[in-house]
């Protein structure tokens, strides 16, 4: 595992409360995969003690660039947003199990809000896959939309919904997705738990493969402290086990994880 300081190339607000940070690091860019995350130290002080797990949004392996997308939620992300260009950031990573790619399948990604972040590199990888895999995007937001152009370039068709109707369809992206369920074999989703539950339920009715990328408050980020757990199936029947989101995930087969407990 790596722990090092890497240089921040850019760090700017792309829409209200959502930031994009670009980091240059050859080692991370070479090793990282879609769906993995970096564990970042936002502030060099004890006031914000813990690192923050931020998923990898985009990788440019040739230029050794890693792009992260994050939303201001509290002291940690505010600290991240204040890191200036050319400053160094302390990083552990890349960490976790990313999205598995299944060849010759029809795919869709379903992202909600900042949950769209890890899906971008996945769509890029699907497009760049030996025999390109078809992929549609379903992106849901409360009000402000972002990153639509980039998703449109990488995906065959991009559907957008906002809860307030300010852009795209008014309502929930899950409802739009539900109508097109028959078009796909594999679904990848990341976003609010309630949205991922709904997607899982829809996929389960049609026996579609579904992968969910989970978020949980983390400590060490490497699997030692056992704080970032989720319930996963263990054996037959109703038995379950606490898996670690940081290293058993963050991407799980939706059938394996119990999202509603």
């Amino acid at each position: 595992m790596n722990c090092q300081k890497s240089i921040v190339i850019s760090n700017k607000e792309i829409c209200s409360g959502v930031f994009e940070m670009v980091i240059e690091d050859k080692c991370i860019a070479e090793k990282a995969a879609a769906g993995q995350f970096l564990h970042l130290k936002p502030v060099e002080s004890n006031e914000v003690l813990l690192r923050r797990p931020i998923s990898i949004h985009r990788l440019d392996r040739e230029k050794a660039l890693i792009t992260l997308l994050y939303q201001l939620k509290g002291k940690g992300t505010v600290g991240l947003s204040k890191i200036a260009v050319n400053e160094y950031i302390d990083i552990i990573g890349p960490i976790g199990k990313g999205f598995p790619i299944e060849s010759e399948k029809r795919c869709a990604i379903v992202g909600g809000g900042i949950g769209i972040a890890p899906l971008m590199q996945l769509t890029a990888d699907l497009k760049a896959f030996g025999k390109p895999i078809s992929c549609d995007a379903y992106l849901g937001f409360r009000s402000d939309v972002y990153k639509l152009e980039e998703f449109s370039m990488l995906c065959d068709k991009t559907h957008v919904a906002t809860e307030d109707g300010s852009f795209g369809e008014k309502g929930y992206i899950t409802d739009i997705f539900a109508g097109n369920l028959h078009k796909y074999d594999v679904i990848y989703t990341c976003g609010p738990k309630i949205m991922m539950s709904k997607i899982k339920e829809l996929c389960s009715t049609k026996k579609l493969k579904c992968y969910v990328s989970l978020e949980e408050k983390m400590g060490c980020g490497v699997g030692a402290c056992l704080v970032c757990v989720c319930k996963t199936k263990a054996g037959d029947g109703d038995s379950w086990h606490h898996s670690k989101v940081c290293c058993d995930g963050p991407v799980f087969d939706a059938e394996e994880v119990l999202l509603n407990d």
Binding site: L49, K75, G76, G219, V227, C228, V229, H241
Partner: peptide, 23 residues
């Protein structure tokens, strides 16, 4: 032991709280 439900960690000033519960 499977321990307690998540969230099991919270940050406070210069400190953290955990409630892993001996998983």
């Amino acid at each position: 032991r499977e321990g307690n439900k998540a969230p099991r960690i919270a940050e406070a000033s210069a400190s953290i709280l955990n409630s892993v519960g001996l998983q």
